[in-house]
């Protein structure tokens, strides 16, 4: 049992993780005719908590409780994996990325997330404004405007051969490349890195 847990605790390679994620598509279809999509949960939470009479949030969100339970499960899964199946070794990040990020002032590679960014001390600073407030807002606004995120478009949409999802995925990548290669450095300088 211990050896099994140790084996599970190593980082899982892409060819294990990718197919399991892909199988979520048929699993949801077969379990209950559900289309895979995670960003919809954000809409359902808005509809449940602050609908404010807006037509976009006026629908029966209770019918979509499954989606909210799914994302609750994602959080629980995160808790279980981190607390019971944690990788004993530090994350291995490509040396080229470490070099690029060191130039931006990110030097701590001991955890899955850079502690220099993702800490509560940064909350009321420019760093928090950029990485939590602005970043989160763009993710929420953009996914809803696009009608989906990586799960709904890139995985579910392309799996079912829908060309609008291919377009959406291309523009996810365009935005990501532009931010990473052009905007991130000046923005990080601006907030004090």
């Amino acid at each position: 049992m211990n050896t099994f847990l140790q084996w599970l605790s190593q980082p899982w390679p892409w060819y294990v993780a990718g197919p399991i994620i892909g199988l979520t598509v048929p699993a949801l279809l077969i379990l209950g005719n559900k289309t895979f999509g995670i960003s919809s949960s954000l809409r359902h939470i808005c509809a449940a908590c602050v609908p404010a009479g807006i037509p976009f949030f006026s629908y029966n969100w209770r019918k979509e409780t499954w989606n909210l339970l799914f994302v609750l499960g994602v959080g629980i899964g995160g808790f279980l994996a981190t607390n019971f199946l944690a990788n004993p070794d530090t994350i291995v990040i490509s040396e080229a990325t470490q070099r690029d990020l060191a130039a931006l002032g990110i030097t701590d590679y001991s955890d899955l997330m850079p502690s220099q960014i993702f800490s509560w001390e940064n909350l009321f600073t420019g760093k928090g404004l950029l990485f939590f407030v602005l970043g989160g807002f763009l993710v929420g606004f953009g996914t809803r405007y696009a009608g989906g995120c990586t799960s709904g478009h890139a995985i579910m949409g392309i799996s079912s051969l829908q060309w609008p999802s291919v377009i959406a995925t291309i523009f996810f990548m365009v935005g990501g490349f532009l931010m990473t290669h052009v905007l991130l450095e000046p923005l990080m300088k601006l907030v004090g890195f």
Binding site: I38, S39, S41, L42, V71, M113, L130, F131, F132, L134, G135, G136, F137, L138, V139, G140, F141, G142, T143, R144, Y145, A146, G147, C149, T150, S151, H153, P164, S165, I167, A168, T169, I170, F171, F172, M173, V174, G175, G176, F177, L178, M179, T180, L183, L184, L187
Partner: peptide, 19 residues
């Protein structure tokens, strides 16, 4: 899908996370 997709991409590279 073009405009929103692009905006999400910008955010994805900042937060390092999709939803």
């Amino acid at each position: 899908q073009v405009i929103g997709g692009f905006i999400f991409g910008l955010g994805w590279a900042i937060t390092g996370a999709c939803p």
